[in-house]
Structure formats: C-alpha cells, structure tokens
Design a protein around this nucleic acid. Sequence first.
RNA 1: GCCUCUGUGGCUUAGCGGUAUAGCGGCUGAUUCGUAAUCAGCAGGUCGGGGGUUCAAAUCCCCCCGGAGGCUCCA
Length: 636
Amino acid sequence: MQLLLIHSDYIEYEVKKSTPVAEKIEESFKKGRLEEALTAFIAVEKIDEANVEGAVSKAVEEIKSVASQVKTDNIMVYPYAHLSSDLSSPKAGVAVLKGIEDTLSGEFNVKRAPFGWYKAFKISCKGHPLSELSRSIVPDETVPGAKSSECVTAVKEEVVSEALKAESTARSYWHILTPDGTLHDAEGFDFTGHENLGKFVDYEISKKRAVDKAPPHVELMRRLEIADYEPGSDSGNMRYYPKGRLIKSLLENYVLEETSKVGAMEVETPLMYDMNHPTLKKYLDRFPARQYSIESDKRQLFLRFAACFGQFLMNHDMTISYRNLPLKMVEMTRYSFRKEQRGELVGLRRLRAFTMPDMHSLCADMEHAMSQFDEQYNMCISVLDKIGIKVDDFEVAIRFTRDFYNENKDFITNLARTVNKPVLIEMWDTRFFYFVLKFEFNFVDALAKASALSTVQIDVENADRYEINYVDSDGNSRRPVILHCSPSGAIERCIYGLLEKEAMKAEKGGVPMLPVWLSPTQVRVIPIGEKHLDYALQVSEQLNCRVDIDDREDTVGKKIREAGREWIPYVVVVGDSEIEKGTINVTIRAESQPNKPVKSEMTPAELDAKVSVDIAGMPYKGLSLAKMLSQRPKFL
RNA sequence: GCCUCUGUGGCUUAGCGGUAUAGCGGCUGAUUCGUAAUCAGCAGGUCGGGGGUUCAAAUCCCCCCGGAGGCUCCA
C-alpha cells in the first residue's frame, strides 16, 4: 500500500464522474470537507490482497502515529490510485479503505472520499516539516517508507475551459447506425466485416489502448526526410525538411482550391488574441481545448487553436445580405496551437502546432445549414479520397443531441447511407457544446488508435456571442447558423494517415508509396555510367514533373535500392542500349510487388503522358531539393 | 500535468563500475559499373545536461531536458 499523508488547513472534494469501478454512493457522500485535517491519500496494491486485515492495521498504525505527532483529530481517508502502478482489485481496495475508516473512527473524526470516482479536490498544505509524509506499507513486513519530502506548495493555475470540464461530466449514449436506418446498441454490435469500426468504437468507448510500440509513421517521417522532432522548441512543434514542406504545401494548396470551388473566400487572421476580450473570453470557455498563453507587456494573450475567432470578429463587422448566404470564409491556419498534454503527443498524429484548414459558412437557418452540412460531408469524402485516404480507410462518427436526432432521423440515416457502412453515433441528452450536430472521419492506424481528420459542426451559439447578423429579404436583421468545417483535418495528420496506411500495406506484403502528386520525387533517372549523364539530362528535360538525377558515383544496384527506399514512383535507368534506341527503362512502383519490380521500356514522351494522368487536376510544385543528387545534403 | 520505460559520434547500435564497439552516412583514393548496399583508407564520441556516491561512472543514486507507452484529449 502506498500512503501519502498531508497535514492541511483544510481538505475538500467534490465527485465529478464515475469510473467503471466506482462504488455506489449516497448524495451526501458526493461532497466533503474537513478542517485542520490529516489527509491520507491511499493506493491499495496487489500485495495487500494477501492480507487485507494486516494491511489495514499497518496503515492505521502509521496514520495514528502521524496524527498524534501533528496533533489533529480529523482524518480524511482519500483513495488515490495514482500513487501506485500495481493496484489491487477494486473490491479489495474498497475493503481496505473501509477497514481503515472503521478502525480509525473510534478515536478520530474520520471522513472518507468515495472510491472509483473522478474527484475535484482542494487542499491547503501547512508546509511544516511533518506536513507531508509518504509511506510504503507491506502487510506483515513494514518497509521503512520514504522520508519526509519537501513541502512543495506551488499553486498551479491552469486555465481549463468550461467545455473541457463539461466534457468530463457529459453522459454519452453510444450507438451504431447502419445504412438501413437502424440504431443499434454499440455494445454487442457484431463488427464482422467492419473490424476497423470495432477498433474505433473500442477506442472511443472502452478506451482500450494496449500498445507496446511507437506508431510506424514516426520512423517513416524521419527516414523519408519529411519531418522530425525539434528539441529546441516545445514538444509537438516539429521541423519539416524540404520534402515535408513540399508535401504540406501541396496538400494545403489542394484543400484551399477545393474550398475555393465551393465558394469560400480565403482570408488571414492573427495568431494571437487578447485573452480578456469579452467575446473571446466567453468563447474560450466553450471550446474543449487547452491554449498556449503568453504575456506581452501587461496583456495576456493566447495563441489561436482554430481560425474561428478571427473569422467571427470579421463577420461581426461585415454587412451581410441574405443574398450572400451561404457566406464562406477559409483560412489555412499555419499554425493552430493547442497545448495538448505531454503524453498525447506522438509523431505527426497529435501536435501542439499544426496546420488546419478552417472554413466557416454562415447559413440563413437550420434547414439551410443542414443542406450545407450534407454538401460539406460529401466534399470531405472527396477531399480525403484525392489525398489518398479512401472511405474504407476511415470510420465515421456522428455526434448530436437527442432532440436533434428525433427531429432529423432521415437526415442522419442518409449520412450513413452515403458512406454505405455502419457509423458510430454519440448522443447527448443536453447540449454541452456550441454545436448540435457534428461528424468526424476518424483514421484508425496500425495500432488501432483513432484520430479525427475531416469534421463539420453546426454551431448554434457563436452568431449570438459574436453578434453576427445578416439582413433578410424582409429587411430584418437575423442571426445565421454557422458551420465549422475542416475539409481534410490537420494537414500534418493527413501525412500521418498516409504514412500509417502505407506502413500497414507494407506489413501485408504490399509496396508502400505516396500518391504520385505528393511524391517529392516523381521520376528518378539513373545513368549507368558517367558517359550516360548527358542523355539522362535530356530525358529529364522531356518530363514535365519532379525529376531528379542520381549522378553520384555509386553502383546502379545501390542507386536502385535507394530510389526504392525513397518510395519513388518511377525509376528510369539509362545506358548504352537506351541511347541507341532513344528509349528509357522504367520501373513502375505502383505495379510492382516486393522483389518483383515491374519494368517497362518506353519513350520519355510516353512516361510523361503516364505521369500527367497520375497527377491530373492536382496541384503541382517543382522539386524542393537540388536536381542532382550529388548536390543534396543529408538531413539525417 | 501524473505514472512507467528510455537517451552512447549525423543515423542505427555493442558495452551496463576500470574513460568506448560496429555498421550506415561523411571525406580521400581506386573502380565507370545494367536493376535491393563495389573495394580500401581516414576523420568523427567530455556516452542527453547538471549534481552526488566511488581510488575509478557511459555503467550506481538524485534533479532537469528530450523521446516512447499509459491516464486524458482531439484536427
């Protein structure tokens, strides 16, 4: 058993939310306070199960001895699982805690906090030498516990938004919606044929996360010279090498083009905002995210975690007619900042600084918003598809309030019908957030971890908060309904998704590669000897894509191997026979199997035509590195 | 933020109380090569940082920093 004893001016707690192992409790038990108390934080461990009575009596002895030293009669028995990584069963835990409570209550004024609940608590530590003690107790054999630790009474003030707090108390009802419109209980649903959905549901509901290795994209992002950790910054702020910057840039351009096609106007808004701006302050409280805050002179500023503020403040000042609706604005936020908790950050999956396309649509009313929602749902599917993440690669979650569902069953069902597979439903009794309806497309990776990509939300709060109005046909001023949309989700997360997807493909015996339009090198030309370099150059000039030439002094075998490790879609080898015939010898990655390259002899013009089919309609940029490989530095 | 694990030349890594091992990469030379690593030589390390224990620390202990996994959370 682990014991942490704190002599405090007062201790008070309040129950927030039950865990699966929570004991059933009375209403009066949900809050408690003791003045001038010795608080015993207790973690009951596996080893205590062997001798529950022994553990109880040892603990009581310790607590009594400390209580007499600090001269207090009030004792708070407080279950605190985090003291140990080898916890007992909940049953044994409750038994021990109750035992301690009962034994002590003869002599002391004892209170006990409930077991198995998330609790908020406040404690004021006295700070004298005996005020903080910890003990390790083993039944029948007392281990001399740790000595008095220093009294660290740093009061940390973290700004936690109301929405974050609300989220921890929100009661969720989980269902699976099949395309036929049936709402199944999520528990007990047969996921045969929908294994990824099963994993996603597990991830969302039961929070099962048995993972023992790093996600494969972390090694890939480095080996492919896309991105890397930057120890010189804050965690979750990455560096992007030329290849990574190229890929990001292409993705950003693509998503912006797609939003432009649906009529969005691109704008740019500030990265930092006044924390005490009255409107923003209220918004902060409604968004479930943590912010970076910075001090500048006497102002408290926060870094944006989305583009909402800037766009809404702009909307507020605009004159908008019903004729302008839906009014769409978009920004590629480089960056959005969220101060995610340390342990949440992994590679490109979750970052503290990330690039997110953020589009907002002002709609006349709910009906209008729903038809826009539907359009944007379809746009998101198509955007991810072009990026290389297909409908089968993600799982759909739709979240809404019960009222919304009851009024719009057909509408919701149609969303499941569009993707033609079962989707996860999360329903709330009351609206905790600013939206009544949202969906996300969740990528499920090789380790069964899920993370959201595209999302659209129907916001019914912020038009009021920001006082955004439009003038309707009757001349009256009205509040629009606002849609938040990130068509692709975070750009970095798309890269994560692509890399994870290809890692899974390689695992199953496929040949991994990026879509041709995103490949940093689309064609590599390898001259067999120095004398073929001129011809290689000529060939490269006939290709309208990102072509580089491996002019290094290495063997052909080695160059081929390296081109393969870089996932280059087309590898061209030229030597005497090609020069003679005016052709090239092309290895086509997309058609190859491991150890079975598919080679084809063609003319440069034929290859050019082939590549242009691959990249048709997608954004293009030139090479981000020197054309000649001998001139390229190594980043890793 | 908390818990657990982890950190050796640019990268991957051996060593786990007696100041360090190899491969890749880099440089030099030879080789000019037909599809998954040409050969030889050279340079490069205060073993993440700081403190402690010891005759002696990469190795043991403490603190800090980075990374991984979990709690939690999401784009």
